[in-house]
């Protein structure tokens, strides 16, 4: 269950190769990558600086992945989140999940991202032509996470 917070970029292909290496049970890998847009809430973004809360970040991400493991039959999960100064088109975050079938992999990957957006202590500050601005949390992120509540029977792929 690798969880990494890093300033460096990452290569999705080699990360996935490493994640499923030696595990012949894996029949599905789902992945999400988040990248920096050049326009956010009508503000042109020149750079995006990401900070986090060391110690809590790792703990929160591990708890989110554990929660996903408890809900779906997944084999492994990877979360990489970058910090520091990023530019439009840079990669910010990668989540990848392995499982036997695609249903669990897709669903667990989306679940981990939704929880990461609302529970993991990262903050974005944008440099715009009007000066720096802290990105505000979105109500749509809270709505995205709320739909996982009370889901006792996880959706699973028809066999």
């Amino acid at each position: 269950m690798p969880i990494r917070i890093q300033t460096e970029d990452f290569d999705a292909g080699s990360e996935i190769t490493a994640l499923r290496a030696g595990d012949a049970r894996v029949g599905a890998v789902a992945m999400f990558i988040g990248t920096v847009r050049d326009l956010n809430d009508a503000h042109a973004v020149a750079t995006l600086t990401l900070e986090h809360y060391p110690g809590m970040t790792e703990k929160a991400l591990a708890a989110i992945v554990d929660e996903a493991r408890g809900r779906w039959a997944i084999y492994d999960a990877l979360v990489i989140h970058r910090i520091g100064a990023l530019k439009p088109m840079d990669q910010i975050v990668m989540v990848a999940v392995t499982s036997a079938h695609r249903g669990e992999a897709f669903t667990a990957c989306e679940f981990i991202m939704d929880y990461l957006k609302t529970r993991a202590p990262f903050w974005k500050k944008e440099a715009t032509p009007d000066g720096p601005r802290w990105v505000e949390a979105r109500i749509t992120d809270d709505l995205a996470v709320s739909r996982w509540k009370g889901l006792d029977t996880p959706a699973s792929e028809p066999k």
Binding site: G55, W134, V135
Partner: peptide, 26 residues
């Protein structure tokens, strides 16, 4: 101590208590 708290969460000697805005990662 690195766990999200509510208003009723107890505060004790040696605790690390962090204040921050709603998170915006991802």
């Amino acid at each position: 101590n690195h766990d999200l708290a509510s208003g009723e969460t107890p505060v004790a000697t040696g605790d690390e208590i962090a204040f921050f805005p709603p998170v915006t990662g991802g």
